[in-house]
Design a protein around this nucleic acid. Structure first.
Ligand code: FES
Ligand code: FES
Lengths: 153, 153
DNA sequence: AGATTGTCGAGCGATTTAGTCAGCATTGTA
DNA sequence: TACAATGCTGACTAAATCGCTCGACAATCT
């Protein structure tokens, strides 16, 4: 019942791109360093995100990666589905026809369907812009803490 | 992002026990047949459920398995956690200290924490009694359909 | 005693995860 | 034009997990 590192890494990488939106392309190595992602693994994640139209990449010196759309228009649901495939917690809830084999007697499907729907609803409601906003807020809070240590606890 | 067959099988098995609550122990082979679960695999699931106090088993002829508590007092959350371990979708949300390694910068943790909390809340609100009630209802509906075919569609 | 049931642990093949690596393609710069 | 910096791709792999099977054993009923 875990989402894999792909999803987490990928979102982290996109946040990094969103934070530098409008400052030209960010390089693979920079993303990898700042977000602690194995560089050559990140390659594959970026490739997938490119295929699905979330980012645009340019080669050559000064090249790198940047968001293909404004951060506010990229939601977590689609990003995660791109990297992880269907997020359905049970095969019988997946749209993917490769998953089949549902016990027609199984009386718990409705539970999971509700949970799954709620999950998707929430993920769809959160954009990269929301995530970067959160990060910036926390960063601000930390600066305040650092500047005025007597506030602590 | 899937729950494994363990969870699904296990819940199916418990539903089967709940349906026959009060009629004496149900045998492994019966559960396996009725719910389409490999018999020798089911063994391990039942063992786990026994260890965690959900069922009681008796050996010898006429033996089998039965619920250790009333169906209304067994919730889906605990059953699934017993069979699957922590349901946390990210290592950094797990109570299990074996999972660590959280990127302190990662700005998406709060999203998943909320989803996870909601999920647990829902799973905790559903008991085996609720599930059997659902199955019985559907069965009734199906009997009506069968008796009066012209109602179809 | 013998049949019937559950209990336990070892082991195993397939699949998935989480990468690595080598080599090619493209582009900017000197 | 050479070359360096970057991205792109696919093949490969080690380790973990999944979904079981099997065999030996223990308890209980008749
Ligand atoms: S088989 Fe689909 S919910 Fe159990
Ligand atoms: S590392 Fe915990 S949410 Fe990303």
């Amino acid at each position: 019942m875990k989402i894999s590192t792909k999803g987490d890494y990928g979102v982290r990488a996109l946040i990094e791109l969103a934070l530098h939106e409008g400052e030209g392309p960010v390089q693979r190595a920079d993303i990898a360093h700042r977000r602690q992602i194995p560089e050559s693994y990140l390659d594959h994640l970026l490739a997938q995100l490119r295929r699905d139209g979330f980012i645009r990449s340019t080669r050559g010196p000064g090249g790198g990666h940047e968001l293909a759309r404004p951060p506010a228009e990229i939601c977590l649901l689609h990003v995660l589905e791109s990297l992880e495939g269907s997020l359905a917690p049970l095969g019988c809830l997946s749209d993917d026809p490769a998953d089949d084999a549902h016990d027609p007697l199984c009386g718990q499907q409705w539970v999971w369907r509700e949970i799954f729907d709620e999950m998707r609803r929430r993920l769809a409601a959160i954009s990269l812009a929301d995530l970067t906003e959160r990060e910036r807020e926390r960063e601000r809070a930390e600066r305040v803490m650092a500047a005025a240590p007597h506030y602590k606890i």
